[in-house]
């Protein structure tokens, strides 16, 4: 069965491009427009990987990470941050919130797939 990825970004263009890239590689993709939406969808669908933006309205990516890690299903699921902010502080926060890794925007579709295949194969 195809692995399911939850792609979270408030920017529709980025989100759809991520979805397009991932679907092209055979993943199932669920899109969410912000942290709150993602949390709802993460509860409804038990996805295999979460790829989230950090800076979003309603609920940001860090809060999402924190809350996801509290859910039993998401304790050991890879969660990647896809973000423009590559500063140390952001990484520290991401790590503290429970991120598996980070990926810097602007993203290259090939690299995205490469990284994802490393974590969920």
């Amino acid at each position: 069965m195809a692995k399911t990825i939850l792609a979270v970004d408030d920017s529709a263009s980025i989100r759809q491009m991520v979805a397009f890239t991932l679907k092209g590689a055979g993943y199932e993709v669920i899109e969410a427009v912000d942290g709150q939406d993602a949390l709802d969808k993460a509860n409804a669908y038990k996805v295999n990987l979460v790829l989230t933006d950090i800076n979003m309205p309603r609920m940001d990516g860090l809060k999402l990470l924190e809350l996801l890690r509290k859910l039993s299903h998401y304790k050991a699921i890879p969660i990647l941050m896809l973000t423009t902010e590559s500063g140390d502080e952001m990484k520290a926060k991401g790590r503290a919130a429970g991120a598996t890794g980070w990926l810097v925007k602007p993203f290259d579709p090939k690299r995205l797939l490469e990284v994802i295949s490393k974590v969920i194969g």
């Binding site: 969660i79 990484k91 429970g98 991120a99 598996t100 890794g101 980070w102 810097v104 290259d108 490393k118």
Partner: peptide, 16 residues
């Protein structure tokens, strides 16, 4: 730079 990274010891970080 590859522009990405994993946190060692983080949940679900690649084992290899």
């Amino acid at each position: 730079a590859p522009g990405y990274g994993f946190f060692p010891g983080a949940p679900a970080a690649p084992k290899d």
